[in-house]
Simulated scan of single mutants.
Amino acid sequence: MYSELISIIVNLLIAMLIPTAVVLGLTYINRDSKELLVRKYGFSSQIWLGCVGIFIHECSHAIMALIFGHNIVEFKPLILPRNVARNDSALGYVRQTWNANSTYQNMGNLFIGTAPIWGCTLVIYWVSKTTMPNVYQFVLSLEKAATSYSMLKVQQVIANPNLFANMDMTSIVTMLIGLIIIANIVIGGFDLSPADLHNAFGAFIALYLIVLVILSVLTFLGFGSVVSAWLLKIMTAFVLLMSLSLVLSVVINLVLRFLNFFI
């Protein structure tokens, strides 16, 4: 029983640290991408080339704040370049208040602070599905194969990608538009501010302790193996879901580095 409990404690920590690492990784990569843009093309470039992402970023904050019962005092999803100086260089913002005595609202800070990661990822999947269905189906097939823990299935999917099958000129143009939108989302949407990360940190600790108590009770009731299997599935699903955002973020960062070096 106690060995199962220790296993649950470790697995839960890993299950929560993996999303944390992904969030911090996406923030670092895309913050660097915006710095590359600003350094080479000026401050306004991150707005023009990341406006869709900035808009989704702030809307994600606002939607999650409403879900957790926060009171939105002021909401600006996108600030145009000519107005940025008057707003402390913020590209957009959501200002909200909440009841400090409410566990639910305090816990919401974790999800509100990291909401742009989930919001931008979901929109990227939707844009992929709408503008490049072949790529979307390939990603889904690859994720399904990975969740089956079968390297053979993964190799089969990679060996037969069919990414550009049955594509006419309209499909190619649509795909290019989709790529431009996705690049815009990646550049502007994934950079969490220090305030976002600060608000999420305390809520992360509280959430870990609450979930740990619940899972510990389930383990003492004899559901240890079920809990372990559930945690493994959650970790795998999250990594696969975020893999597209991670790959796109790295690719765009490398492209910007390439352009800065040669141009």
Rank of each mutant, 00 (worst) to 15 (best):
S3V: 11
L12M: 05
M16A: 06
T20P: 09
A21F: 13
Y28C: 10
Y28T: 14
L36M: 11
K40I: 01
K40E: 10
Y41W: 12
F43G: 03
S45H: 01
G50Y: 04
G53D: 03
I54W: 02
F55H: 04
C59N: 06
A62T: 01
I63D: 06
I63T: 02
I72Q: 05
E74C: 10
F75M: 02
L78D: 10
L78G: 08
V84H: 07
V84P: 03
D88K: 13
A90G: 13
G92T: 00
Y93L: 01
V94F: 03
T97K: 11
T97V: 08
N99K: 03
N99W: 02
N101T: 08
S102A: 06
Q105V: 06
I112C: 00
G119C: 07
C120Y: 08
V127G: 01
K129R: 13
V135A: 14
Q137D: 15
V139C: 15
S141Q: 14
L142G: 03
S148G: 05
Y149H: 15
L152S: 11
L152D: 11
P161V: 05
A165V: 13
A165W: 13
M167T: 15
M169S: 10
V173Q: 07
I181T: 00
N184V: 00
G188N: 03
F190C: 00
D191K: 10
S193A: 11
D196Q: 10
H198W: 09
H198S: 12
A206K: 13
A206T: 07
L212A: 12
V213N: 13
T219G: 07
L221M: 15
G222N: 03
F223W: 12
S225Q: 15
L232A: 15
F238C: 08
L240D: 04
L241S: 11
M242C: 03
L244C: 01
V251H: 06
I252D: 02
N253V: 04
L254Q: 13
L256H: 05
F258K: 06
